[in-house]
Structure formats: C-alpha cells, structure tokens
Design a binder for these strands. Sequence first.
DNA 1: GCCTGGCACTCCTGTGTGCCGACTGCTAAC
DNA 2: GTTAGCAGTCGGCACACAGGAGTGCCAGGC
Lengths: 355, 355
Amino acid sequence: MNDKRDLDKRKAFILATVVYEYINTAEPVGSVTLTQKYNLGVSSATIRNEMAELEAEGYLVQPHTSAGRVPSDAGYRTYVDRLMQPEALTKDDARRIRDQFRDASRELDDVIEQTTRLLSGLSGNLAIAIAPSRDTHAFKHVQLIWLSPRTSLVVVVTSGGVAAQRVFEWPADVGADDLTRLSNALNSRFGGRVMEEIAPANVDAVCAELNVAAEIRDAVRSVFASARQTGEPEIAAAGAQNLLDQPEFHDLRKLRAILRIVEEQRTLYDLIADELAAENTANADASPHVRIGHELRADELAECSVVTVPYRFGDRAVGMLAILGPRRMPYGRLIALASGTARSLGEHLNDVEIR
Amino acid sequence: MNDKRDLDKRKAFILATVVYEYINTAEPVGSVTLTQKYNLGVSSATIRNEMAELEAEGYLVQPHTSAGRVPSDAGYRTYVDRLMQPEALTKDDARRIRDQFRDASRELDDVIEQTTRLLSGLSGNLAIAIAPSRDTHAFKHVQLIWLSPRTSLVVVVTSGGVAAQRVFEWPADVGADDLTRLSNALNSRFGGRVMEEIAPANVDAVCAELNVAAEIRDAVRSVFASARQTGEPEIAAAGAQNLLDQPEFHDLRKLRAILRIVEEQRTLYDLIADELAAENTANADASPHVRIGHELRADELAECSVVTVPYRFGDRAVGMLAILGPRRMPYGRLIALASGTARSLGEHLNDVEIR
DNA sequence: GCCTGGCACTCCTGTGTGCCGACTGCTAAC
DNA sequence: GTTAGCAGTCGGCACACAGGAGTGCCAGGC
C-alpha cells in the first residue's frame, strides 16, 4: 500500500509541514502559505502538484474544492510514526510534574484524580487515568479482632490503603487466642504476595491446618474476596472543558457525543483498557501509543486522537494514563507529557505504597 | 417592595402561566400565545396591559421590543414561593430511586457517586453531592497490631468504611499485650462516639491512664487525626452533558464558565456548603431550598438555578444533594426528585453504615 | 371604569444576492 | 522537472429585504 518509498524526501517534508501547520493554526493549509512560511526552495505551483499527489495517495484531504489541505488519518499516522521529531519534556513541564508528585496524596484514589488534573492542565486536553485494579495491590496485613465472645472484626489491609473490613457474629464462642493464631498464620503465609495470588483455596489451606471452624473460614474468605473485588473499574477523567477551546468541538453535537463518552466510564475504560492488557502480555516496552481518528473504532471519536501510556508498579504495568483531544493535537509534546507523568506516577506509587 | 398585594388573582395567574409556559417552551411568551393556550377569559389586549404592569413591577423582562416576556429572578422567585403547585414524586421516579438504593454499594464514596448519576439521570440536569465529612462518621474500632517487637500496625475503622492505617517503628521493644490492652481501652472509651468527638486530648487521657510510652501515644494520635482529616471536601458531580441540551447553554462562553465551575470542586463546594452549615444551626427542616440566578452570587451562574436539599445520617444533616440547571427548570419536579433521593440516601446510609 | 378590536410601530430572523478572497488545476513556456 | 500565469470553483460575509411576532396605544362599547 502506502510504502515508505511513496514519499520521497520533499514530499515527506511537505506532508510534515502541512500537519505541523494545521496543528498550529486549525486552518486548511494552502500551497502559498506553505511557500511563504517555510523555506521550501520551490514555488507554490510545485507544491500544488506534490500536494495533489499526497491527496491521491491518501495522506491529505481537501474539505472543499477551493480550500487548502488537511491531514487524513493516514497523514497523521505517517507524521507520528516517521516524520515527527520526538520531543523531550520542557524544563517547566518537568518541574510542574515533579512539584505535583512531591506533595501528592498517599491515598490511591486521590493520587489518580490529581494526576488527571495535572495532565489535563499541562496538556490542555482531556486526561484520563485507569487506577490499578485491586488485584494488583500488595497484601499487607490481615487481622481477626476479638470484639466479644460471639463477634469479631476482620480487617484486610493492602497497599491500596483500602481495608476491607466486616464484623461477624459466630454461632458459638470464639477465643481471642484462636483469632490471633489464625491472623498470624495468614500473615506469614501471604506476606509479600499480591492480592490476585491469594485464592480462596489458599485461605482454606491455612484454615485447614489450624482446624478453624467453617464459619470463620468462610468469613475470612469473604473479606479477602471483597478486598479483591472491584465493582467498577476505577477510572478518572478531568479537563473536559479544555475541549471547548478546540474549534473542532464548536459543533454541539460532536461535543455532546464526546461528553457522553467521558461520563460513561465504561466506554472510556474499554477505550484504553485493551492497551493495558496488551502491555502485560507482549514484551512490554512501556512506550506511549497513539491512536488516531478511526483507529479508535468509535464514530463519535472519528475526529479525536488518544495518547496512552502505561504506568508501572514494581515491574508491572498496572494502570494507564491517556490524553484525549482533537486529531489536531501536538503529538510530540503530549507524548512527552504522558510519558513523564506516567514515570513520576509510577515512582510515587513505589515510594509511597511499598514499604 | 413587591408585596403579595401587588398581585391580584389574575395577575398572579398570568405570571404563573408565563413562567410555566416559558419553562416548557424556552421561548419568550406573548399575549396571544397565552390567550390561545390557556383559558384566561379576557382578550390578548388585556393580557398585554397586565404583562406591562408585571414588567414594571419587576416580575417579567422583555428581551427586546418585539418579543414576548420572560420571567426575571423575582418572577421565578414568586413562582417558586407562592404560585407553584408542590409536586409529588411520580410513581416511576419513586421506583427508580428505590431500585437504585436497593442494590447500592456499601462504600460511601461509591454511594455518593451513584447518587449523583441517578439524580442527574432523573432530573436531566447537573447533579451534585457533598459527601459527609469524615468528622461525622461513627467510630467503630481501633486496633494496634503487633508485627514485630519494634513495629506495629495501627488501624482505625469508622462507619465510612475508611480505615486510617499506618505502620510505626518503635525505638524500643513493645509487647503484644500492651498493644492489646491499649486497643481495648481506646475501644471501650470511644465506642459509640462520632469521630469529631474524639479529640487528641481524649487519646492522651487514655494513654496516660495506661502509662503508654510517648511514641505510641503520638502514633495513635496521628492515626486518629488522619482518620478525621479530610483534605479535599468530598464532592461528586454528574450529568454535565445534560446542560448541552438546554438552549441557554448553546452559547459556548456560558457553557465553558459552567463547566469550569463544575471541574473546580472547590467552587462547587462553596456554592452548596453554606446551606449545609445553616441546616445544622437553625432549627433544621430538611426542606429543599431553591436559589435563582443572581441569588447564587456568581456571575457565571446568573442564568442558573440550584435546588439543594440536605440528607441525614441519624438525626443530623451530614451532606447535601443539589441540582444545577438553567433558571428555566421544572422546579416542582426537581424539588420532589431531590427530596426523594435525599430521603432514600439517608435511609440507605443508616441501614448500611450503622450496625 | 374596565375591556376589546384595530392599527401603527419595532425589531428579530431567515433568505437571497452578489462580491471578495483563497485556493486549486491546468497549460504553456523555461 | 519547475514555474508563472490564468481561469475556475467555492465558502464566507455583508447587505438588503420581506415576513412575522409582538407590543403599546387609542377609541369605542358594555
């Protein structure tokens, strides 16, 4: 199809310049503008010929006959993959990210939310974050606490700072010593594990060794289960009002479609989650991915692009950051921002949560 | 000023009808429309005279010379206070509220968020909820857990399901028995209390009685403090995209102003929180309040109204629900929805959280 | 004295027209 | 292969104009 060889050096430069110019101005780019603003060494007529070929090859689109050219999905794709200069974080951005995480919260939910605010503020687009599933949290502690002969409190503490806890009533008296013994056995067995490694069968095994009553075994099992269970996937989004500034969303119908997607967390989750799954199966490179227009497989998002990047906890990608904006987004900058923020977030999680 | 006697029966009916019609159509209401759609018994010329007087008295406004009339803040205010029929929840709405809370989450944060989704869905406007401050949560349990001679885990469990927990390292060995004794003393002293009643001095008193080491006392104090502390006030909002359907927000600048307020949780909180404070000082009636246009004291919200209603935990108003929408909102229905939802939310909290 | 029909007036809104400018594609010459 | 020039296309904007909705006022009637 459109092989690299389709694009000689000059054509590639013209394509890159059209994309660059369109990203900055939001106006279709014409041949004269191009020769005036950029030093191309040839006349506008030559550019016109080249642009006509680029259109025939599918890289550019003309909104109407007497307008300039606008990049197509394929045009953006080529720009992102081959033509664009990778950008580094600016000093200022790096500082703001560092400042944010220096005094960030220790509560996972808050950190995730604050991260989306940071990223939307820096990027001027909509920022999204998927929080680590509870399954990936580190087990920290379980304690069966004697309240009265027939009632106990069972608490599970994980690295998420989230403690599943419930009070149980027993049919017969239970001694505080028994509870302590069971607590100790569970803690020594599960210490250092991640929650998803602790199956009901593991709990059963420990209980069986100590001859624990069936009610207590079931109680412990259920508390572990609810410490792992994650009703809704945790997802946060911020900066929807940034999209209003983009001329492509001045159309209310488009805007509404986007806002609906943002409020329906399920859709937002699906949009990004498959990248997370892929991240842990393939040899993970933790590099940012860009999906452009129809690549998102959602009609409402046909004029949008998404930059996604996983963040790590230990050696594993546990969550995703994403930036959603118009296709006409400054890819280089946003990729740098997303990567930098993901790295800092990962470091913060490792600093704060593992002890 | 504009006393009740200003409005004879016919004028009041005309005002009510204009407001009602405008709420339904979003179009300025003219005298002919009024006579045609409503059985007024007089000609349009008479209505014109009355409407001119209502305008002079400040209840109506004319967008431009050749347009019909639109209610002013004062017009809406009079409508809400004196002219409107109170509405009951429709069977369908009542059922949907009931269904929602029947299988609602047991986690406070989730409940609050789900409630805003419910309320925005039912009302077709933006719904906001302030979660109960952690100070109002009931103390449930504290436990000092022996991990090793020199390290312990301190856990505080409250009705919010939120456990403050932290691991401490001691300068000298500490026995498991001492920790248990202190735990028991704290639990029996604080059982049945609300978090805000547990001051550092109370912790100190218990520790002093048991001759607890200063480091341990400080550790317990700090965990209690962070169990109470509430960095950001918890606030949730949902349904911003509903506002797009309202013709008054087709102006992008207005829309952006509103969205900015919604994303800045602080502003949103301030908007509603004073009502909550008032609720617990005066003799609380827990009835809905309506604030209209400039009564909101925010230029961006000059064309909006807010319905607020507190919800109760026990006998105390602990949080607020609010509906934000255009002034042209169906006040009767929204008041019924907000009240009904607040009542169900309160009942749910009492059912689930207190045991 | 209140109500009403009629009428002149105001002003928004939608539509049609024509012009301007931006840009292209093509051709012929270099 | 490149370029200048030119004709052709089309969107956007300003403008004028007609239509319509609604008002305020006045004179006459019950």
